[in-house]
Amino acid sequence: MKEMTFGQYYPTNSPVHKMNASVKILLVIAYIVAVFMVDYYHFLGLLACLFAIVIATVIARVPFGRMLKSIKGVIFLVVFSAVLQVFFNKQGTPLWEGGFITDEGLLTAGFITMRIVLIVLGASLLTLTTSPVELADGIEFLLYPLKYIKFPVHEFALIMSIALRFIPTLLEETDRIIKAQKARGANFESGNIFKRAKALIPVLIPLLISSFRRADELADAMDARCYAGSKVRTKYKKTTFGLGDLFGLLFFAGLIVGVVYLNGFYLYPYLVA
C-alpha cells in the first residue's frame, strides 16, 4: 500500500525535530557514552540518564507509547541477559542458604536491563524525531572531515539517499512479484528451510533484473540532469545551528557531568542495609 512507511519517524513540530541532525547524532552518542560511564550498581546515574531522556521525549512531543514500542524489539535480548546474570552470576552472597541466586546477580541483571533499555530509548528518540533523509544528511555532514583522507563522502551520501528513496519502491515491487508467483502456485509458507529458500528464487530473480533496469534508467536520468560527481556541486539544503542545538549540547554536557558526580555515591550499602 501507499501508506507504507519505514523507519519510525514521528513528525511533530517540536524543537527537537527542528534540531540539526548532525548535532542530534552527536548528542545520542554523548548520551550513550554517559550511560556507559555510570559505574556498576550506581543506579542514581542511570536514573539521571532516564530523567534526561524523559525530558527530551516530552520536549519532542513523542508519545511514550511509541518510545516503549521500540523496546519490544530488544525484549528478547533484555530478558536473555537478565536471566543469564540471575542464574549464572556466582559472585556476591547467595540470597538464601545454599541458594544459587546471589544479590550481585540480581543487581547486575537489573543494571544491565536498565542500561540496554536506556540505550534503545536514546536511539529511538533520534529516529523518531529525525527523518531518514535528515539522518543521511547528518551523517554526511559528520563524515565531511574524512574528505581530506580521500574518502568519497559525497558519493557515499548520495548512495545512502538513493537507497532510502528506493526502499519503498522496491518493497512495493517485491509485494507485486510475490503475488504474481503465488497466483502461479508458488508456495512460500511451508516446507523446510531449503525448500523455502528455493521458493524465493522466482521472486529474487525478477527483483534483481528489475533493480538493474531501474539502476540503469536512474543513471541515465541523473546524467541527463548534468550529474558529474562532486566537482562543482553546490548544496541546496542549509545546515543550520540554532538555539535548540546549543541548548541540547548544554543539556547533555550537564548529563555527563551529573553522571560523573553521581558515580561518587555508592548506593549498594544502603540497599542491603
Partner: peptide
C-alpha cells in the same frame, strides 16, 4: 529529458530536493 518510468528518475526522497538535484550539479548558488 523526461523518461518513461516515473519511479526510476526521481533521486531524492523529498520533492524539492529532487528538483534541486540538477541545479546543484551545475554548481548554482543556493
Amino acid at each position: 529529458v523526461v523518461f518513461q518510468n516515473p519511479d526510476n528518475q526521481l533521486v531524492a526522497s523529498i520533492v524539492e530536493d529532487d528538483v534541486a538535484f540538477g541545479p546543484e550539479n551545475l554548481g548554482i548558488p543556493r
